[in-house]
Amino acid sequence: MKGKFKQIQSLKYSVTMLAKRIIPCLDIKDGRTVKGVHFMNLRDAGHPVELASYYAQSGADELLFLDIAATNENRSTLLSLVREVAAAINIPFTVGGGVRSIKDAASLLDNGADKISLNSSAIVNPVLIDEISKMYGNQCVVIAVDAAFILNEWKVFRNGGTIETDKELFDWVKEAENRGAGEVLFTSMNHDGTKDGFALEALKTMVGRTKIPVIASGGAGKIEHFRDVFMQCDVSAALAASVFHYGEIAINELKNYLKQNQICVR
């Protein structure tokens, strides 16, 4: 086999050549993106497909669509949106919000979603994780967890952070992994919206305790925060919403900065 392949230079800055992923998150309500988006070159910044295409072209590695209304009435709107997104963009995307049954998951996947994100419904009915992963493979099940650090413990919340549960963060992630989740998206409620950086300590613990890839979420404000979370916690991906939507951080500039800091990005 020697000589058939060119030698590639090994990278000193990364254990593997697997790139760290940057994932913009789009909140969807009634088929439209909710948070204000400020891009001059979009015809309609509220339209998820336009925005998704824009991000795909600017170097985003993946996208997350979150249906924040998630009512049954809106389901068909969401499905046709998923189909439109799948037709338009050439990178993977995850859809979450209101997935309560294997049937919900199936219709999203059939319309072109690559992964399903489960949050509250998995807490209420953990078997849902087993069911979807057995049917479609664990690569398409993302367990999304919102948690807050209260009295020396990370407690899991559900229903958009409004209801405290009796679950402890790391135990719940482990359980979800054992049931067949292929990836975990952890949002620290203590850090979300602060723009003060990610929950580094908790993320470090999580990466150490789980075998599945970890996506960091909550707290991104500056490009340095992304460097810190990749360098200090070795997470697989970092997710953010407003810093991208408001144009505070451009994805190509962020990636150049991470490259300069010896972090493997695409």
Binding site: L18, D61, N138, G182, E183, P213, S236, A237
Partner: peptide, 8 residues
């Protein structure tokens, strides 16, 4: 970390 998931 398994799955091997992402860009390589």
């Amino acid at each position: 970390k398994v799955p091997h998931m992402g860009w390589n």
